[in-house]
Every structure is written in structure tokens, then in C-alpha cells.
Amino acid sequence: MVWTNALLQGLLTGGLYALLASGLSLVFGVMRIVNLAHGDFSILAAFLVLTVAGQSNLWLGTIAILPVMALLGYSLQRSLLNKSISMGVLSPLLITFAFSIIIQNVLLKVFSSDTRSIQTDSLGSSSIKITDSIYIGLLPLLTFAIGVLLTLAIHFYLMRTRGGRAMRATSDDPTAAELVGINNRHIYGLATGIGLFAAGIAGILFGMRTQFSPSLGPIALIFAFEAVIIGGLGSLWGTLLGGIVLGVAQSIGAQINPAYGVLTGHIVFILILLIRPQGLLPKQRGK
């Protein structure tokens, strides 16, 4: 029963990692760039909600901040990252690394290095009883559900809409996409906008579930990156699976010894890199 519980809790934690990773996966899938500031943008969203929620309602604050994150992503892509893409593979890495440092230091200056958390009243402590020894937290369950729903929503957008089709075409061949009238710069902006929207959701839910501080962005990035790699680069459903595998691995490791949780996740990540470097559900060539 203890192991079933660990598996269940890991599964739910995986939903959070999948949320963290979905934006990273989309941006990589469309532009082949890794946003090294992805985790910091998540934490930035958590701090922004903390600030806004202090003056109004938490959920209204969340609804207000998410479009801001999307707009921020679109603007950064159009103003800086699009230029860097044309300068080679290293430039976007360096620029997003610079974003990471800037965000961390601005947050440090404004909010200090103290750890914080977003208060959710009863949501954070409510749980559903499954058996006498297994309880599912309402917030982790909500996080998992949002993770699955977001993956479904992005999948629907990519597969069923005109904009999504254009995004996949641009991902395949940006030059050919221009030839059918697609503005690649706009599409890239949209991808980063969606990416930061997802990062924002993940950061806010992360802030509701646990304590966070300005320096937590790189750790969030590592978990997101591991989920993307485990699942398969550029594969959205693979990312969801990768997040779940990472969450379950950490949970089982922590069950063996509380100090082994994160370590077990890293070991599973390395094992999958060794055994199946393309990931569990890789994006197929031609798919």
C-alpha cells in the first residue's frame, strides 16, 4: 500500500513537471531552441501572482498574470530572440541564459532571498480519501488535471487549427513556410507566448504547492528539461509521460530514503539517456 501511495503521489507530481516542461517542449519543437530562462519565467509568474494576490483575489490575480506572461513571451521573441535565431544556435542559448540571470537578480532585489508560498486557503490542505492509508491532495490532483488538459489543448491547437498547422509547417521548414505566406517571426512569437503561458501556470501551481525563492528557476528548468528528454525532444505527449516518469521515480526514491528522491529522478534520467536516448515517445521523423 505504501508503494501504491508513492506511485500515486509521484504520478501527480509528474503532472506538475509535465506542466513545467510543456512550454519548453513546444518552443524547442517549433524553433529548436532551449529557453534556459524557462524555469525563471515560471518563478517570475509565481512572484507576480504573489504580489497581485496580496492586493486582490488569488484566482483573479492568476487570470490576470497568465496573459501578461504570454504577451511577455511574444514580445521577447519578436524583439530579441528572432534576431538571435538567425545568428546561429549559440546566440539564443546565451540570450536566454542572460534572461535567467537578470530575472533571478531582479527578483532577489525586489523580493529578497526569503522563501515564499502562495496561500490557497483550504485548497492546499484538502484531500480525497481513497483508502485508509491513501489520500490524494486536491491541489496535486488539480495540477495533474491542468497538466493533461493543457497538453490536450496544445495538441488540439497544433493538429486542428489553421494557426497550429502553420506552426507545424514552420517547425518542419521555415523557408517553405514563408513561401506559403506564413510569417515565421509571428509564429515563433506565438510559440514562445504559449510557452511562457504554460510556464506561468506551472510556476503559479508550483508556488501554491511548495515554497519558492528567486534562485529556484534553474532547478525548475532541470526538472522540466529532464521531463522533455525522458519523453523525447519535441514530443508533447512524450513530455507528459516524461514528467510522470520523473515524478514517479522521485517519489519511489523518496520512499526508499527521503534523501534519495531527487537523486533517483536524475538516475532514471541518465539511464533513459543511455538506453533510449531518443526518449520514450520521440517525435517521429515525418510525424
Binding site: 502553420a166 507545424r168 509547417a169 518542419d172 513556410a177
Partner: peptide
């Protein structure tokens, strides 16, 4: 041609 798009999607795009 966009390899990951179907013929239908290539036409529609």
C-alpha cells in the same frame, strides 16, 4: 513539402 504534415494539410496550409 512539409514532411510531418499530411497531403491534405500541405494543401490546406
Amino acid at each position: 513539402i512539409f514532411p510531418s504534415l499530411t497531403v491534405e494539410e500541405n494543401v490546406k496550409v
